[in-house]
Each structure stands twice: as structure tokens, then as C-alpha cells.
Amino acid sequence: MMAKLTIPEEELMSPGHMGCLGCGATQAMRYVLKAAGRRTILSIPACCWAVMPGVWPNTCLQVPELYTPFETTGASISGIRAALDALGQEDINVIGFAGDGGTADIGIQALSGTADRQDNVLYIMYDNEAYMNTGIQRSGSTPIGTWTTTTPVGSTQEWEKSPKKNMTAIMAAHGIPYIATATTGYPEDIIKKVTKALSIKGTKFMQIFSPCPTGWKMDPALTVSITKEALSSRAFNLFEIENGAYKVTMKPKKTPLKGYLMKQGRFRHMPDDLIAEVEADLDSAYENLLHLEECTRKKA
């Protein structure tokens, strides 16, 4: 019997990579490459993905990849695109693939420059909500209440105190033509959005929520199912912003936030009143998203 597959069969990521058990970021790469195809150049800064392809001379990636300093992904993909334009090779996809720290924190300046110039590139932030490659330190993308090695939970309760940085809103403020969120539990959705992004000229930004069992203190077998609970608890939302118009691409039935949190050691210390506070904020952020969808509809 011929297999009926819902995502492209061709693999541009090989086994033998250095990703941890159940790594969401490797799934993200696998799906992005399935969508982008062979005529793609990747730029990867310091992050898990700087190590996972393998130690020289190995690589698990079947497309050309350029490793760069931590904060330079935006500038690097702009440089690649400028060179391709100069060399008359305009039909090649240029994709930056950076972690949340490399995007929301140290790389935000160069990314802002790229978006401001509307350079024709796709920037992908694979979001595992902390600096995982260096060993689980908090980043701008770490949500409230999270334990990390720099937000330890001792008697003084030094867990992460500030909300997850809203990168899509920051990118929307740059007026770029396409922004989307996605998660590794929905590969078809990633592929659809990457394909769409690559069909649009200008700067495109995607935030792919990618579970990290190691950093989230979670059973690696739960990498896929946890993304479904992240969505239903509103810890992460799937939407697109196309030319300023918001579209919520998945509206799952609400489940309690606590169910999502308690499966992960990084949240298990959170007291009920803090969970209630965070849940109210996440619910209101989701409502806000629906309002944005409503009031930007005409623009679509």
C-alpha cells in the first residue's frame, strides 16, 4: 500500500545529529526544510542548531549553511541576499534560523535592521523559551513563573518575573508583509506557513514554538502532545499577520493552564495564585488576538 503522507517525503535533514531526545527544534528544522526545498541557504547563529548538525566535517543538513556569531543572523541573511542579488541568483530562499535568545535578546538589533530594510529573507525564531544550548538560562522569551538556571526557585522564589517578550508584535511594528507563529506539533501548518512566507517578497518572520524536553524538565515522549496543550491553554497561539491583518489560524477549545504547566518540571513549583494570575493574562492576550483579527479584517 502506498503511504498517504501529509507532509513532503523528501528529507533534507539526516539522522546522526546531536539533538537531545525528543528535541522540538530538530523537528522544526526538518519541517522547514521540507517546505523550503534544496534551493535554500541557511544562516545559523550560536544556538542549539550551531551544534546539532554535527562536529566538523559532519553535517545533518543537505542545504548550504553558514554559521555566524550569535547576534548577527539578521545582518548575515541580508548579506547573503545582497550577494545573491549581485551574482544574479535571485531564485534562492535565504532563511535565518535562530533561537529565542538569539532573536528576542542579542540578535534583535540586527533583525530590526533587516526588517526595516524589508530585505527579501525569511527569519525563523525557534522558540524553546530559554537559552538551552548554554544550559537553560532565562531569555526574553521565557514566560512568567519559569524555573531556569538563572531564575532558580529557592526560598526567595526567584522564578522568571517578566512576561514572554511579544516578538510578533515587535515584528508587526516594522510593517513587514508576513508574520506567523507555528508549533512543531502541527507540521502541516509549519509547511503551509513557510511555503506561504517564501512566496512573498520582503522580510518574513516566523516564530516556531519548539519544546525542549531537557530544558523544560519533561518526558521527551511528550514533545508533540505538549504543544497541543500549549495551544489549548493559550500559553502559545497560532496566527498570521499578513500585511497588517491578523488571522488566528487555530482556535482550540480552552483547557486549564495548570494541566499544561504541571507536565513540566520548570513550572511545577508555581503556586495556584500565580497560575491563576498568569492564566488570566494569557486568556486576555488571546482575547486581544481575536479582537485584532476582528478589527484588522478589512485590511486582508
Binding site: P15, G16, P57, N58, T59, Q62
Partner: peptide, 12 residues
Amino acid sequence: PINTTNSTAVKT
């Protein structure tokens, strides 16, 4: 460092 060897050689 120019990486050309397929990582399949690495048995994980």
C-alpha cells in the same frame, strides 16, 4: 571548517 560529510555516519 567546511562540512561535507553526511551525519548519518554518526551512530546516535
